[in-house]
Every structure is written in C-alpha cells, then in structure tokens.
Amino acid sequence: MSGFQRAVPRAAGRPATRRGGSGVHTDGWWPVLFVAPLLIGVAAFYLWPIVQTFWFSFTTFGVFGGQTFSGVANYVALVQDPEFYTSLGNTLIYTAIVLLGVPLAVWLAALLNTPGLRFASFYRVLFFLPYIAMPTAVALVWRLIFNGDYGVLNWFLSLVGLPGPYWVSTPGFAILAVSIVGLWSSLGFSMIVLAAGLKAIPPELYEAAELDGASPARRFRSVTVPLLTPTIFFVTVVTVISSFQLFDLLYAIMGPRNPAMPSSMSLVFYFFQAGFVDNQQGFAAAIAMAIFALIGLVTLVQFRLQRRWVADV
C-alpha cells in the first residue's frame, strides 16, 4: 500500500499540506463574519442548556424545581451504580458493531463508484432507503423479523440447522439485534457521504494506477482508501457520536417492559430512567455530563489519532 501511495503524485489536485503551506496572511475580521451567525444560534439554543445541565449535575432536585447544591454526590453515586457500567458496556458494544458498517460502507461505496456500472443509481436508492424510513414504522417490521417463534431471521437460521433465540427478549441477543438495526439504518448515510468523497478523487489517479498494472483490489487499497481517509475519518467520528446517543431505536425495537431491558439499556436510556422515572434530575444531569465527557474523550482521541492515518489533514 504505502509503496504505491508514494507513487501517486500528491499534487494531482489533492490538497497540499495546510499547515504553513501558504505563506503569511491574516483574515482579519472576516472569520467573525463567517462564524458568528452560527455561533450565536448555537450558544443560545445549545450551549446555554449544557451549561445549565452542568450546574444541575451538582445539585439535588425537587420534582418541580428547587435545587440544592450537593457537591459531587451525584457523581459519587454514578460511579458506584452498577447500572452505569452495564449501560456503558452496551453502548460500547452497539458502537463497535455499528462501526463495522464503516469499512463495509467504504467497500460498497467504492463498488457503486465503479466506472460504467449499470443501475448504480438504483442500488444507491436501495441502500439509502433504511436511512429515509421512519423509525417507528420500521421497528414493527424488525420485530417481526426478530420474532422468536415466527420470525423471518430464525426461519432462515433453521434452514441451515441453527436454533434461533428470542432475539429482542434475551439478554445479550437483544443488544445484538438492536445493533443490527443500527448498522442497517446507518449504512446508507455513510455510503452517501463516502460517495461524495469518492467523487473528489481525480480519475487520473486510477488511470495512472491502471497503467501501472494495479489490480482492482490493489487500486482500492492504494488509491481509494488513502485518498478517502478524511471522509472516512468524518464518517467514523459521526458514527461514534450518534451511536453513543442510542435510545429511540433501542426503545422502538425492544418495547417497554422487556425483561431483557435492564441488561440491555444504553447510556442515554439510563439517563432517561434516572431523570424521569426516578425523578432524580440532578443525578440525570450527572449522567448527561458523563456521556458528554465520554464521547468528548473518544472524539478527542480520534482527532489526535487522525494524524497517523488520515491523509493530508
């Protein structure tokens, strides 16, 4: 891979290194004009509530208000609560499985990008359908697919002689089932973003590689993947962030009063339970802050690591 990558001329329409590449100039007040409209809205509608939540995480609440400062008590309770670790574990499992969709999406997007491939638009629509579909309606269909007695999935498994579990109501399998749906619904999104990235790769590079006698597989590994890394990075970061927010899908697939729920809950589900069900809004705020810190940390690490594998950033 690396050998061929070196052979690809960097200057072929791709960004040169940005850092220090363009001499000295200042943009003066222009950045303010560009950024301010967004920042004002973000600050008012989003950052302020986060600041409030941060403060609430150090308080104890009455149901309809009246908070008293309670120091780090909520955080102490949080790290001592086994459900926190259960939900963290489930969230990580879910995230890991949905992340498997990223390499899959790269491969499928590259296949779709094959020059001269017929029906490409049609395939693209097929793969994008899950992303468009309304979650609540589709959850019902998935429950039928996962049904332990009469489900389509278990019927297929029985054809190859495998006994299928009660997917959505067995601890362990339930989070797997939810992850499958998560993977299914996010694949189309990743593919469409990657498709835009692929289109930015100049065809000349493929021509050069082809002239060098590189096989399709080698062209994929040596041209497509390296030049797509900024987009892959973006998709990965977004996938991790959205996977950590798992809630609606989990609820829609599993339903209420599912005996497997206590062992299958996600962090955000745990947050909701604490916030309303137990009316411990201060504690819920602490969970929200923990989620904030966890995804923030993971994302920060991703940004740090990107220098090692993302081209030209």
């Binding site: 950052l47 950590f244 927010q245 929200a288 802050m289 989620i291 923030g296």
Partner: peptide, 10 residues
C-alpha cells in the same frame, strides 16, 4: 460539543 449530550437535554 453540542452533539455530545442526549438531545432531549435541550
């Protein structure tokens, strides 16, 4: 950072 908390916080 606004992507990092459960959306219903807002």
């Amino acid at each position: 950072s606004i992507l990092l908390v459960p959306s219903q916080v807002y």
